[in-house]
């Protein structure tokens, strides 16, 4: 079972009887519970100190006007940070818009590429599968910063190899009037998506493992029914790998919401070109750490948490209708 299907099976709030039962354990059960809690205590303590407490404090911070350089002047201002963020600060919605726009371009390209590459790497007609698998995974091992630095030069309109490669196919790409990947507001998200494609190795791998798990009888049956390759892909393969697609989707959405490093390394979060790279996380960073505006920063962070939670809940709720789990009757 993958992580999220485990989650699905554990779903449901504890019932009152469970709570009562928890306090009525026999001696042996009590001993076992004691050991269990002792073993999980490292995580439990860490969770309390580094997750639960900071989340609560973060929510409290959002009710204060609090600058780190002058902690003594912190004062309670109620919901003013929240109303400023939601109604008076145009940056909130602009940076959210930028983040979502990029996610809507980058997410489908990344997920479809990972799936199709997995199909290719699973093909019975491919010679040298293992070497291909290793090499297609290799860029994912390139440290992200190194990848960004290399891509930023490969995408150079004059000297970069990408434009020179495109030029070979007859399209005018090189030069001032060519494809200015990192300077053109219309191309910037595609350029960032390219960089992201160097990180889809994990998605390829779990897609691949899932493809290998599809029972061959299903293909044989479909083949007897006269289904061609494309039809088999659509009606057998894709439904069978929906759990993996779902898993990748949730992790990608959460990751993209926090998109930060690429624009930071390329232009220190200046938003260049024309504000198209003012991502929400960059704005949060500036408020919280550049301006040391802890109260407002905490508000922005909590808002991001709420949005992420809403999307995750939405995905899990709709996932019931399109994610197929073997052995479940619907």
């Amino acid at each position: 079972m993958d992580m999220f299907s485990e989650l699905d099976s554990a779903r449901g709030s504890p019932k009152l009887t469970d709570i009562r039962a928890a306090f009525r354990l026999t001696g042996a059960q009590r001993a076992e519970a004691k050991w269990g809690l002792l073993f999980i205590s490292p995580w439990l303590i860490g969770f309390a100190i580094f997750y639960l407490a900071p989340m609560v404090v973060s929510l409290l911070f959002s009710l204060y006007d609090f600058t780190l350089s002058a902690p003594d002047e912190a004062r309670f201002i109620g919901l003013q940070n929240w109303s400023r963020m939601l109604f008076d600060d145009p940056n909130t919605w602009e940076t959210l818009f930028v983040t979502f726009k990029f996610a809507l371009i980058s997410l489908p390209i990344g997920m479809v590429s990972a799936f199709l590459l997995a199909v290719l790497l699973n093909s019975q007609h491919l010679i040298g599968k293992n070497i291909f698998r290793t090499l297609f995974y290799a860029p994912t091992m390139v440290p992200l910063i190194a990848a960004i630095l290399i891509w930023s030069r490969v995408l150079n309109p004059q000297t970069g190899w990408l434009n020179q490669l495109i030029q070979v196919t007859g399209i005018q790409a090189v030069g001032i009037s060519g494809l200015r990947w990192l300077d053109d507001p219309n191309l910037i998200y595609i350029a960032y998506t390219f960089i992201g494609l160097w990180g889809i190795g994990n998605a390829i791998l779990i897609n691949l493992a899932s493809l290998q798990g599809v029972p061959t009888e299903l293909y044989e049956a479909a083949s007897i029914d006269g289904a061609g390759w494309l039809r088999q892909l659509w009606s057998v393969t894709i439904p069978m790998v929906t759990p993996v697609i779902f898993y990748n989707l949730v992790l990608s959405v959460v990751g993209l919401l926090q998109f930060f490093i690429v624009p930071w390394v390329l232009n220190l979060g200046s938003g260049y070109p024309e504000g198209t790279t003012n991502f929400y996380m960059i704005y949060f960073y500036k408020q919280a750490f550049t301006f040391q505006n802890m109260g407002y920063g905490a508000t922005l962070a909590w808002f991001m948490f709420i949005i992420g939670l809403a999307i995750t809940i939405f995905l899990f709720a709709t996932g019931r209708y399109w994610v197929y789990y073997a052995g479940e009757s619907r």
Binding site: Y51, A53, S58, L68, L257, F284, G297, G308
Partner: peptide, 13 residues
């Protein structure tokens, strides 16, 4: 799926 940002500000402070 918890964004680290939500715990970051108090932890940093």
């Amino acid at each position: 799926v918890l964004p680290p940002a939500v715990t970051l500000v108090p932890t940093y402070a």
